[in-house]
Write a protein that binds this DNA or RNA. Structure first.
Lengths: 339, 339
DNA sequence: TTGAAAGCGGTACCAC
DNA sequence: GTGGTACCGCTTTCAA
């Protein structure tokens, strides 16, 4: 800016004003400044500007594994909601490691992030997040809650979701027994859902097949292997299996196709991934719209940043059942343009 | 820093040095400073520091769609390679729109990003990237090349990849005809691969079934729909179909399962996603290791940033054929722990 | 309308 | 060992 000011014989203030499009400066000067600016190849330094204005323009998204469909969808939603505010979203993987999570959070804090959306690594304690409220960075926890921490939380409505799946299985497909399968053992959603699942079955007077209450890694392959192992040591099946995620359901379906020896079983996933349409059979699933969750997290961040702590718009849309084939329904492939 | 300096009766320089762990300052003072710092809840402001050093610590990853498995794997690799250098990776989606791409690139440039890894939006011309070399930000293009631009490029070895797939199909499965299916029409990888595909068939004296040379969106569902349409209007099949990506192959397999009416056809994908193991039949694919590409892009950026323009370590590992069932091979599910 | 100068939060050189 | 101080690049009163 100094260069261009000198080259034009004006002051930096004038340049700053001109570049900012202020009408305090004459239109003619504005033009000259602008021309000189890009003749000189000037590039605006937003960091310097933000330093002065003490503004923040990066929001952090910290997740265990970005390659999981849930995380990348959430990233999409968050980015959409924050690009409107001209924010940059910085993405990081913790790989479920608390120490790398700490390192990343520190970096984000020192970078003066406007806010942080965090899916905590497995085993994260509220002490591990102490640095967040010391530094007063607006933070929202996503998907996995951390007991004892006082951050905002955005997650699935597990109660609605479990009920939605089971009600369909009971009322339409008349199941009498069911099991809950897959998911990481320590993660809070699994504990929640598994508990709600059992509670629902109890209330409805159905058999809760605990032998399928097996924890697995999040990927289809992990679920596939766990399911095969279970099937080979014990071929029994309940009427229905509710899977912790679509990824897990995909693994289970494949295992059933290979090892079920003619027995059959309704399968329902959770997530509502579009790839569920292309499994054999097409996967019935309770959609939770991770992109919407990401967007909501962004809105909450914004609200906290602007002082309205907790006074954000709640996302009112709940989960939604996508009926396809694996629960026993018929899929009309004609309207396969549903996502 | 001023606060803590005053509160301790020392100068800011001392505080800066002490916090930086310099041994110019007495160990005792260092301790006092540190204690006072976190008593006062001081948090380091890296942006201010970097302003002075005119250093930059964020690298941008700009992709059309982060939810594509390729992009998110690449993000993983990039992040790993840049976290070592204490860099933050900022992720953005262009949604294949050139104007939002421009907006994002501008933001990154103004943010003084250390470097940018870009999968260009469809239809990006070298003019669209002019702002990048005006601003001299180290940039590497990934996956899709932009004709006329002079940026480093990291992409798949399409020639090796096509040959690897076709050689296997010819030598092991004795195919006499083949088609290339799917992929976005404008993207450079598709043009490349499609051309190399035809060239290989010609040299090998095989029939090139152009009726399957159909362009599709990148998602399984798009491929599924395109394949069904093709099958319903014309049920003929070549001996083998090479798909532009695993996602597309997944869609095709499903379409074949529904509409092929007993005919069969070898199918090979490109990418090597682990989810290919769980399709029916399990998908044979040429793995390209996107995470490795992301990591390499990171290394190239680093090299350019430190002046050694172009003098980076080339990733020496090429693509790799993963033989599963869809090409006609037998899959040994026992060693399903291969990714 | 334009210019001077005081920050923003650090770093680093140079004295003391 | 510590302190003073001039920057980094931009914004923003306050005067002229």
């Amino acid at each position: 800016m100094l260069d261009i000011a000198r080259s034009l014989g004006v002051s930096v203030s004038t340049v700053s004003l001109a570049l900012g499009g202020s009408d305090l400066v004459a239109a003619s000067t504005r033009e000259r400044v602008r021309n000189e600016a890009d003749r000189l190849g000037y590039v605006y330094n937003r960091r310097a500007a933000d330093l002065r204005k003490s503004r923040r323009n990066v929001v952090g998204l910290v997740v265990p594994d970005i390659t999981s469909p849930f995380a990348s969808e959430a990233a999409l939603g968050l980015q959409d909601s924050s690009m409107l505010q001209h924010h940059i979203v910085a993405l990081s993987n913790t790989r479920e490691k608390i120490d790398v999570q700490t390192e990343i959070l520190t970096a984000l804090i020192e970078e003066r992030a406007m806010g942080i959306v965090l899916i905590p690594a497995l085993g994260t304690r509220s002490e591990d997040l102490e640095l967040l409220n010391r530094s007063k960075v607006p933070t929202v926890l996503m998907n996995r809650d951390v007991p004892g921490s006082r951050f905002s939380f955005v997650g699935t409505d597990d109660s609605a979701l479990i009920e939605m799946a089971l009600r369909h299985l009971v009322e339409v497909h008349k199941i009498r027994s069911a099991g809950y399968f897959g998911g990481l053992s320590d993660a809070s959603p699994r504990k929640n859902r598994s508990r709600l699942f059992s509670a629902y079955l109890r209330r409805a007077g159905l058999v809760d097949d605990k032998t399928w209450n097996i924890t697995t890694g999040p990927r289809p392959l992990a679920a596939f292997q766990a399911a095969r192992e279970r099937l080979r040591s014990d071929a029994t099946l309940p009427d229905a299996i509710l899977c912790h995620s679509d990824s897990i359901a995909i693994g289970l379906l494949r295992a059933l196709a290979i090892d079920a020896r003619g027995r059959s079983c309704a399968v329902v996933g959770i997530d509502g991934l579009s790839s569920g349409l292309l499994t054999t059979p097409a996967l019935t699933s309770v959609a939770v719209f991770p992109a919407r969750m990401g967007a909501q997290a962004g809105r909450m961040l914004l609200a906290e940043a602007s002082g309205r702590h907790g006074a954000f718009d709640r996302d009112s849309l709940g989960p939604q059942l996508i009926q396809r084939e694996s629960c026993g329904c018929q899929l009309d492939l004609a309207d396969s343009d549903q996502r």
